[in-house]
Nucleic acid binder design. Structure first.
Lengths: 189, 189
DNA sequence: GGCATCACAATGCAACTGTATGGCAAAAGC
DNA sequence: GCTTTTGCCATACAGTTGCATTGTGATGCC
């Protein structure tokens, strides 16, 4: 076999360029040539690693999701074993929220993908499982009756805070204040 | 002066077509020709009423916002004078949430516009005022201390529920259950 | 009745889109 | 050393995009 190249690395390099373009100019500015230029490679190479644009988009979406998962698990494991439920919840929600500038870009991309998936049922299916899983996990950590609705509410609040952060309506401090106030209600005493 | 035409009506007709296209196939499918075809008019006419595509988009965004406002005030005035705060809040949040199929389309469009505005600071400014206004209104209705953070949390929860509804993760009943559970916490007793 | 003004249509144009295709160099297996 | 496979590039292509231009009726004012 000839020249061996790490396909995954190349694809990730391209996906990163895609995300940069999407974060700066929106998903509609994402074209093969723009992505290639942003990545500093030829348009032909992008085509070589992704047969179609849809395939490239799907891969980039998967990267965004995986990065989020990594951020969460990293933040959670940093807590050590058996952390108190409230701290655990606060930690992984804070890890998911776009609180700094860099994750703000990621969130912009995620928002663009969300709108993209809203009219493409096939792409939306992947997102569904993620939240359902997250919700039952949060519900298991919440005290008292009505934990299920409370978990749904907490996650919805998280998404909403994410939206406000992306659109620049909230600062990181404001968002965390709102989150903490909500947690105060969920963890009485 | 020649043929007098109701400009606003024509522009609204076109904006409605734009929203239909965006709801079905996403914002990136919104082109002058597609919108014209959907509206059943010539592409030249669209150009006649909107000098540029951006102007058309801005007008459509304004229409979406205005429709939301109308929905809210209609639902609220239906309550009569001096409604109890909790009912008032629940009513206008329910009016804003995409609970039926038709408003689901509107919400898809709103989501697309949100992503659109996320990378266009000029378009995002209009949204900011709206939520700030809404937040102080809600805060004035909430009891006890920390009303400001609680109002922010409630609105964030609303946005998150909207997202979940649009992406098909929640049914209308589930969303309302989560909302009511949250209101239970905000209005103790 | 002339005529300016407006509504609308048709066409053209350069730029861009995603994808197909062909070619070329390099590297491994024989 | 030759062949084959692979990485990558360049170009071509048909279709679409936003926008400019020009033309054509129709209308209402004077």
């Amino acid at each position: 076999m000839p020249k061996k190249v790490d396909h995954l690395q190349r694809r990730t390099l391209i996906a990163d360029a895609l995300m940069r373009v999407a974060a700066e100019r929106g998903l509609e500015a994402v074209s093969l040539r723009h992505v290639a230029a942003e990545a500093g490679v030829s348009a032909g190479m992008v085509q070589h690693y992704f047969a179609t644009k849809d395939e490239m988009m799907a891969f980039a979406m998967a990267v965004v999701r995986d990065r989020g998962e990594v951020r969460v698990t990293a933040a959670v494991t940093r807590l050590g074993a058996e952390p108190p439920p409230r701290l655990l919840i606060r930690t992984f929600i804070a890890a998911l929220l776009p609180l700094d500038e860099q994750s703000g870009d990621t969130a912009k991309v995620a928002l663009a993908f969300l709108a993209y998936a809203a009219v493409r049922p096939a792409a939306a299916a992947a997102l569904r499982d993620d939240t359902a899983q997250l919700r039952s996990f949060v519900a298991s950590l919440l005290p008292g009756p009505g934990a299920d609705e409370a978990a749904g509410g907490l996650l919805a609040l998280m998404e909403g805070l994410g939206l406000y952060l992306v659109s620049g309506q909230y600062t990181a401090e404001q968002a965390l204040a709102v989150l903490d106030a909500h947690l105060d209600r969920l963890f009485p005493g």
